[in-house]
Amino acid sequence: MGLGLVHPIIIRATGKITHGYEHPLHHVPTFARTFYRLGEGTGFMKALLILATVLFAVHDASLSHAEPPTGTLVGRILYVGPAIPEQVIEVTRDTAFCGAQTTHRAVAIHSITRGLEGAVVSIDGIALPASDAAMPPLVLTNIHCAFAPRIAVGIVGQQVEIRNDDPIMHNTHISMGPRTFVNVGFPQADRSGNPLSSLGATR
C-alpha cells in the first residue's frame, strides 16, 4: 500500500472551524467514498460535513500511476467558535425506560484541544480501485434510546446492520435526503440488514 501525501484540509464554515496537522485524528479508509450521519442533527453540522467534502481536493499526480491511489490522511479539525449548548429534548415515548428528557449535542468538541469529534472527511475527485474484500457490516445500535455510533462511514454496497439492544420497541427511521433509507420497527433485542445503495449523507 502506498501512502499519499497529507493534503491541507480547508474548511470554511460560519462556525469558525479551523484546521491543523499536528496529530492524527482520523484515519480515513481509502474506501471512504461515502459518509452518512445518524441521529438527530442540525443544519450546521450538515453544512460542515458538506463543506468538508467539497473543499478537500487531491492533486497528487503520483496517485494515478502504478501505485494504487491509497493513503492515510491525518489531521485535526478544530472548532474555535463559541460553545454550542446541548439541546434538551423532551422524550415522548417510553419515558419509564428512556427518561423524561434527553440531551443532544449537535457538535461535540473536546474541552481542552477544541478538536471536533465525529468529523468526516470525504475525498472527491479520485477513482479508487474496487476491492473484493468482504466488508463487515456497519452496525448501528439502538441503545439507551439513542443511536450508537452517532456518525459512521460506509461504502456503497456495504451492509448496514441495525440492532435494538433496548428492552422496548424502537423504530429506526433513516433518510437519505427526502428518500427513506430504511424505516423498520424493532421489538426488543432484534436486528435487520440493509445495503448502502448510493453515495451521500444519510441521517
Binding site: 427511521h173 428518500r179 430504511v182 424505516n183 420497527g185 432484534d190
Partner: peptide, 14 residues
C-alpha cells in the same frame, strides 16, 4: 413494507 416518508415502519423483519 411500511410507508416510506411517513412514521409508519416496516414490520417485515418482525
Amino acid at each position: 413494507t411500511g410507508l416510506d416518508g411517513t412514521p409508519m415502519p416496516s414490520y417485515a423483519n418482525e
